[in-house]
Design a protein around this nucleic acid. Sequence first.
DNA 1: TAAAATATTTAGACTAATCTAAAAATTACA
DNA 2: TGTAATTTTTAGATTAGTCTAAATATTTTA
Lengths: 217, 217
Amino acid sequence: MNSFTEENYLKAIYKFSLTTKKGVSTNTIAKKLNTKASSVTDMLKKLATKNLINYKKYYGVTLTSKGEQIALSVIRNHRLWEVFLVEKLNFKWDEVHDLAEELEHIKSEKLINNLDAFLNFPTNDPHGDPIPNKNGKIKNLKMINMSELKANEEGIFVYVKDSSDKFLKYLSKNKLEIGERIKILEIEPFDNSFKIAYNNQQLILSESIAKNIYIQS
Amino acid sequence: MNSFTEENYLKAIYKFSLTTKKGVSTNTIAKKLNTKASSVTDMLKKLATKNLINYKKYYGVTLTSKGEQIALSVIRNHRLWEVFLVEKLNFKWDEVHDLAEELEHIKSEKLINNLDAFLNFPTNDPHGDPIPNKNGKIKNLKMINMSELKANEEGIFVYVKDSSDKFLKYLSKNKLEIGERIKILEIEPFDNSFKIAYNNQQLILSESIAKNIYIQS
DNA sequence: TAAAATATTTAGACTAATCTAAAAATTACA
DNA sequence: TGTAATTTTTAGATTAGTCTAAATATTTTA
């Protein structure tokens, strides 16, 4: 049996793994979990001895398939509880995250599968994120070019076509990072520029920049 | 904020307080929570410094009103989750206790009040126990004589009229204790004797014994 | 009512998860 | 490419909740 804390580490590692081919770094995890790098190192050792992650000192971590399975199950729980809170208990979609962070750790297959059925097997949570099924399978996620999106659509920034230094500098200057959730506010018909919102800020992207950005929804 | 563990102690103390006028003893709590008396002593000191219990060394504890309020809120959570599991997620009434033990510790007034409304403000959980309202008020519990019960009714053994040594010895010989949940299996019309079930055993009580036993339902 | 039995508390230790500070390894860049 | 900056790890400490064993208090009973 894994503790709440262990599950939170696995979940964090899983999420960062989606947007990088390399191992996830100690500092990245520490920032996400509001803890210190030294605490992360301790936990990584522990997770490695449990065969939940592949850990090589100084080179970050990846999940083993056992670790990934646990992460996916926690994510499934989280997203199903969010659906429940919004659809049945009248919560707003932006009020449910913290509660779902607690509920997700209640470990009962029967509970979560019955909840899934009660909610009529939803495929996405209230934020639009896909819900893994009971075998941990996530509905085919397809990546599309930002320029194909319409106003009010949104998704996660997952990939850049042009990864030149210049372009990456541009992104970094605007604190627009892989993994960020982006919403299209409007598209200016005159020049096809995109006004977007992400992480509490707004930005206008030219058409050529939009064409460099891929979104997963 | 109180930990899960602290809440479990308060809940245990609350339940034992219902059936005794004196303070609840260290050993009683230890047995209930599957822990050691020394661990209980440590926790009692901690709860006392938080003003949740009245603790006098060697003389057991009672809850302060602040402690009672917390215990009642945890019990409310527990019982509402049990209703949810049985009525909405198709659990059997005897499968829900352990899950409710986990769910009860999720602290969100909004969550529990919305759940209450979603379930249509139930007054009793699937085991028949009353659900405290949001102010911690429990619907008038009335104690009735066992002889007034009919077959298939049940409740908690809370009081004895004749507390003579003889009678108490009889109860103790049959491991029939205050606090036990008792179900009437059948009543023999010939002599008004009661066949009851409790704690995985059955027993036949004469009419005069039944008249000494009070039940809360 | 005093010795025996029982209950409770204290003392000291352990584990999980965390921290700070220092040491060591890796990466960046002049 | 070697020094500086950054990242990661190690060492040692802390906290909550628990434990065992020993000490102490209360209760039972002869």
